[in-house]
């Protein structure tokens, strides 16, 4: 063990002209290293991919079975809410590439909350903010990384889902081409959807600085609130179901939808609403982090 530093101090003027100093690209690289060097993150990302593709395969299998039942003149299968007319199976089939979102968003939301909240839980945040004392670049870089990774995972999962689903759907002639209307957009937007989920969740995690609280809040916003609106409080006032279209996951659904629902937001509107959620939470988390003590 040596007892002194290996590099002697150079004269102050000479060492600052170039060489090591902060830059956003470098902070990005640092955040990328952080994401890839904690095993649980990598495992969670791999799980997300597998689960999403698996769900899509199951969904297409379920469609194929339902179609077969119909063809053989059996009782119509239970797809969707009871009492409603049976939806068009070929329309449903086109939704399979993005069907993994249902579960994928839960994993991505947890990941995004954990990535930031665990820094507070472990004390890592102090190292991060001493290295990047302006704080905003560090947080921004973390958001960029988690959004990019979520986008890639989402889009890759949707594309893989498409590939896996085709042979299953083909049994009942429900298969479709990539070049069909809105299919590529749905696949790409599966990535966009997860990226926005990630940014919203990271904003929540940054504001709460707590893993459990952050995950619960994100789940509440994404899953519980829409259900509450539909099942419990939609009768209270006319505007409530109307307003619920603007909840992040409800708006996001339109982003990946292949068939536009009546009265729903358009694809672009859905995307913009969800993006607005992301921007508001991101800006709030940046402002708060700049002000608060670490």
């Amino acid at each position: 063990m040596s007892t002194s530093t290996s590099t002697p101090a150079a004269p102050p003027g000479a060492r600052r002209s170039d060489g090591p100093r902060l830059s956003f690209a470098r902070v990005l690289r640092s955040e990328w290293i952080k994401v890839t060097t904690v095993p649980s993150t990598v495992i969670l990302l791999a799980c997300t991919l597998v689960v999403m593709v698996g769900l899509a395969a199951l969904a297409s299998w379920s469609l194929q079975t339902g179609q077969a039942q119909l063809d053989s003149g059996g009782p119509p299968p239970q797809m969707g809410p009871p009492g409603e007319p049976l939806p068009d199976f070929s329309d449903l089939a086109r939704g399979t590439p993005s069907s993994g979102i249902i579960f994928g968003q839960l994993l991505i939301a947890s990941l995004a909350v954990v990535l930031i909240a665990s820094e507070w839980a472990t004390g890592m945040i102090r190292s991060t903010m001493v290295a990047v004392p302006k704080r905003v670049p560090a947080l921004l870089a973390k958001n960029v990384i988690v959004a990019a990774v979520s986008f890639l995972i989402g889009a890759a999962a949707a594309l893989l889902s498409y590939v896996v689903a085709q042979p299953i759907l083909a049994v009942e002639d429900l298969d479709f081409a990539l070049s069909d209307d809105k299919i590529v957009a749905s696949i790409v937007n599966t990535g966009t959807y997860l990226a926005l989920i990630a940014v919203i969740s990271m904003g929540i995690g940054t504001l709460l600085r707590n893993t459990a609280g952050g995950v619960v809040t994100a789940v509440g916003l994404f899953f519980v609130l829409p259900v509450i609106v539909v099942n419990l409080i939609s009768g209270l006032a006319d505007w409530i179901p109307d307003a619920s279209r603007f909840l992040p996951t409800n708006a996001g659904e339109q982003l990946v939808a292949v068939v536009a629902e009546e009265g729903a937001l358009t694809q672009l509107e859905g995307g913009l609403v969800m993006a607005a959620w992301a921007v508001v939470l991101l800006v709030a988390s940046l402002l708060v982090t700049r002000r608060r003590d670490i």
Binding site: R21, S30, T37, E119, S127
Partner: peptide, 26 residues
């Protein structure tokens, strides 16, 4: 600065922690 012991993510290795810190400044 060494401020408080354990300002590190517990699941990351020492080498990777140092790498991530070094990366911010190139």
């Amino acid at each position: 600065a060494l401020l408080e012991a354990k300002a590190f993510h517990t699941k990351r290795s020492a080498y990777n922690h140092l790498r991530a810190m070094a990366a911010t400044h190139g």
